[in-house]
Amino acid sequence: MFELTYHVILFLFIAAFLAGFIDSIAGGGGMITIPAMLLAGIPPLETLGTNKLQSLFGSGSASIAYARGGHVNLRGQLPMVFMSALGSAFGALLATVVPGDVLKAVLPFLLAAIALYFAFKPSISDIDRHSRMTPFLFSMTLAPAIGFYDGVFGPGTGSFFMLAFVSLAGYGVLKATAHTKFLNFGSNFGAFCVFLAYGVVLWKVGIIMGIGQFLGAQVGSRFAMRIGARIIKPLLVITSLALAVRLLADPSHPVRIWLGV
């Protein structure tokens, strides 16, 4: 049994609260919680499994808050959520087959591209626009594909969902954020079930961090609903760029290994 001291538990709770706040607005909460758990001495596999448990609290909390605010119909989104969960479960199961180094190498540049898209596209706002993809097609293709990615690797999942909802589904930024959280809940659940089956979930740590995530997501989602695109758009840009920089700063990143730096 992995045990943590009380001051480390408090550190993880605060990290989870901050992650829940940021994740409910722009995604990227794992950028805070995963390093925090590794820093606390939790083994990598248990970190991934426990992270999915505590992420369920944050994404679920934000989904409820956005639904109560009238920004998402939870029942109407169930097909997309189911497909996201299914894709994530397969991603977690097939993680050893997917070329992880390729994902790690490409991801920072994809996140930078997403940040530039949201930063320099002036028409992005809270107003819905013409949809380029039907909800059924979105459910059958992008929802499971991004969910699969979340199960295999994970960082930036919220940014990918946001980009898909804004650019292809025609959603305004606030509506896209609300729907992203519910699909992220599905992808978290799918991967969590697989990690649970492998017995790599630390329940005490996950629940304590989950409470922090829940509270942080409540505060963050209410903040986003009050201010809308004025806060979501810049925070999404900053979060995506910060995650890209953090990934490239890792000495074990494939690009740095290939370049010998």
Rank of each mutant, 00 (worst) to 15 (best):
I124A: 06
L163W: 15
R222C: 09
F148Q: 10
R68W: 03
G156D: 10
R226M: 08
I64R: 03
I114K: 02
V81D: 06
Y198V: 11
Y149A: 13
L196R: 00
P234K: 00
L259D: 05
R68P: 04
V205E: 14
R246C: 04
A89I: 05
L196N: 00
F185P: 03
L86W: 10
A224M: 12
N188M: 00
L243E: 04
I9C: 02
T47N: 07
P108H: 00
F160E: 05
A62N: 12
K104E: 12
H253C: 14
A224H: 10
V81R: 05
F165D: 08
I9S: 02
S125L: 11
S187Q: 11
G212A: 09
A89Y: 01
L48M: 13
G199W: 11
T177M: 06
Y6F: 15
F2W: 05
I146H: 00
Q213T: 12
L110Q: 10
G30H: 07
D150R: 08
G151Q: 04
P99N: 04
F161R: 12
D150I: 03
L142R: 03
S167I: 09
I208Y: 14
K204I: 08
P155E: 07
I127D: 05
K175P: 00
A176R: 14
M80A: 12
S88V: 05
D23E: 12
E3N: 08
T47R: 07
S252Y: 09
G190E: 09
L111D: 07
F148P: 12
A85D: 13
S61I: 07
T157K: 07
F11H: 13
F82N: 01
L247D: 01
